[in-house]
């Protein structure tokens, strides 16, 4: 039996929560996966998108509230020298590194699948709303912490039968 979309977002969410706890000492409250019911949904301050290709073909989106990505960036780079003019670029790279590590590590748990490939992450700055396509399923999960929320979306075409 193949891995389902619901299982994928659950695996990714658990890995994201573990990454935040183990690497950043940021606790998140328990999470629950839902299908997005409305036709539009809002993204947060900084969003990064990565495509899982191969047998599994889905887009994974991590959308960070400003305060949360700022906190993650501070912890992630605390031992490095970051110049003020590099800061915005490095905040975006922090988000890209996090989605890459979390989704990359998650692939170990995708059972009964051939190899999957990962695209480099792309960034979307500033809050935007996204229109939901009727040809795709959108799942969402929100990881809430005292520093802000990370919203995780998984999007797959209905044709893939996931």
């Amino acid at each position: 039996m193949s891995v389902t979309m619901h299982e994928i977002i659950k695996i990714i969410s658990q890995r994201a929560a573990k990454f935040l706890k183990d690497e950043m000492a940021i606790d998140t409250e328990s999470h629950e996966v839902n299908l997005i019911p409305s036709n539009r949904f809002m993204l947060n301050y900084l969003t990064t998108v990565l495509t899982i290709g191969g047998d599994i073909n889905i887009n994974v989106i991590f959308s960070f509230e400003h305060t949360l990505i700022r906190k993650i960036f501070e912890i992630y780079t605390e031992e490095l020298d970051v110049l003020p003019e590099e800061e915005q670029e490095y905040i975006e790279e922090t988000a890209g590194d996090m989605i890459n590590i979390v989704v990359g590590n998650s692939t170990v748990e995708f059972r009964n699948r051939e190899a999957v490939s990962l695209s480099p992450p792309i960034m979307i700055s500033e809050a935007k709303s996204i229109a939901k396509s009727k040809h795709s399923d959108f799942f969402v999960n929100h990881l809430r912490s005292i520093h802000g929320t990370l919203s995780i979306f998984c999007i797959a075409s209905k044709d893939t039968g996931m």
């Binding site: 990454f19 890459n100 590590i101 990359g104 590590n105 692939t107 990962l118």
Partner: peptide, 25 residues
């Protein structure tokens, strides 16, 4: 040095000639 933990990817890397494999973080 990669986040990609799938066994197939490790095999691909070794077949390409990599001598070590370290998982991120």
């Amino acid at each position: 040095i990669t986040s990609h933990g799938q066994e197939k990817m490790v095999i691909d890397a070794v077949e390409a000639g990599a001598l070590g494999y370290v998982i991120k973080p």
